[in-house]
Simulated scan of single mutants.
Amino acid sequence: MTSLPETPTAVTVRAPAKVNLELFVGPLRPDGFHALSTIYQAVGLYDEVTVAEADEWGIVVHGRDADRVPADESNLAMRAARLIAAALGVETPLHLTIDKEIPVAGGMAGGSADAAAALLACETLWGGRHTREQLDTLAATLGSDVPFLLHGGTAIGSGRGEVITPVLAKGTYHWVFVPSSGEGLSTPSVYGAFDRRQAGLDLPEPVPSPAMMSALRAGDPDALAAVLANDLQEDAIALHPPIGEILHAAMDFGALGGLVSGSGPTVALLADGPEGAIDLAVALTASGVADDVRRATGPVHGAHVVPTPRRS
């Protein structure tokens, strides 16, 4: 007699961080967001979210900067779980466990990664009743970066960043990330500084740069380094001057290029290969320029189910 497969009572999903290879900011939209054109790349720093059926709703956060992450209903992963439960008409409470590796408030979309992971974990736990397009729609209501973290790889983000179009990108890129040793930068504060700096200017509708598309198609790290761009970088540096010092030092230490990741303050540095990434990381820490560095490669896959949780 063949037994039926058991319904899982817990699911763990791993989701990556992102770096914006270019981020162009356009005019304000009627909904209060800026029009954006960005090139996302998913990189191999991961958070894991485990959802498990429970007697009541709850959440616990472990790992890097866990004390800076809300462990209540305001947590984006909890909001994602509540959202998909309501969409499916499921009343079973869940307990969420988040294991963090992605820097908090660092411009690498750690909260969005957690939300993407929670969406996929709940969808898997409750039987996979949404299409990917429907999941994308739910994801977009949670945040502009969340749909991309479901997909991963390399992609254009348009609209306010939530409309995802995959990009043909060759090769593997080696990154060194320098998180802030202090508090992060809030996205609203960086955009506020941008708005003050651009006051009175007529911003054009942003579009991807042909040079970026060409560099990605060629899989050429040197070409990519030359076209890394972020319209928010000047404002992030003004709010957190050590960013500029790290970027300047990194170029002296052999980085091919660098930029602020998203709204910052994490600095993303492109190296010429695995050995170059190691050398750059060592130079930054040995010189005292950086207290903490993280190496990762990209592009990587988006949110995906892993066989077993790290922590029960």
Rank of each mutant, 00 (worst) to 15 (best):
M1F: 13
L150A: 05
F194R: 09
T97W: 06
V190C: 03
V61P: 00
M251K: 10
V163I: 03
A155P: 15
T172W: 06
D272H: 03
D136M: 08
V25S: 08
G273I: 04
A10C: 14
A236D: 00
A15H: 11
L83Y: 06
V49C: 09
P221Y: 15
S209K: 15
F148I: 09
P16E: 10
T92K: 08
P147M: 04
P307K: 15
G182M: 07
P93Y: 04
P16A: 12
V306T: 13
L203N: 06
G288F: 14
G258E: 15
E73K: 12
A52G: 12
G143H: 03
A193T: 04
A193D: 01
V146W: 05
I98N: 00
H174M: 13
V11I: 01
P166E: 13
L23S: 09
A211D: 06
A71S: 13
M213D: 15
G110F: 00
A117D: 06
A10W: 10
G26Y: 11
T266A: 08
G182L: 09
S189W: 10
P8M: 04
P309C: 05
D220I: 13
L232K: 01
D136W: 07
G258K: 15
I98D: 00
V61C: 02
P166K: 14
G153E: 07
A71N: 15
A226C: 10
G219W: 11
D72A: 14
H151W: 13
R310G: 13
A15V: 14
L120W: 02
S186M: 04
S112W: 02
S312Y: 14
G264E: 06
V305P: 00
N230W: 07
E53N: 15
V227H: 04
P309H: 04
G153W: 09
D202S: 11
L28T: 12
A277R: 03
S181H: 02
G107M: 02
V227Y: 04
A268P: 03
D65F: 07
R14A: 11
E6N: 10
A249E: 09
S37H: 07
G273D: 02
G200H: 05
T38D: 02
L216T: 10
H62E: 08
N20C: 05
P309G: 05
L4W: 12
A268S: 09
V69C: 01
A105P: 04
S186W: 04
Q198F: 10
P204C: 10
T92D: 08
G143A: 05
L23D: 06
G254C: 02
Q134L: 08
D272N: 05
R68H: 11
A268V: 09
L224I: 05
V178F: 01
T266V: 07
G258H: 11
M213P: 13
A109R: 01
G288I: 14
R79F: 09
S181F: 03
A290R: 02
E133K: 05
P8A: 04
A66Y: 01
R310Q: 15
P210K: 04
D272P: 03
S209N: 14
T9Q: 10
A113W: 06
L224A: 03
L259D: 08
A255E: 11
P206E: 05
S261A: 12
H130C: 07
T154W: 06
P241Y: 02
G288Q: 13
G171V: 15
G273K: 02
E91L: 14
S112G: 06
M1D: 15
L135G: 05
Q198H: 13
G58T: 11
D65W: 06
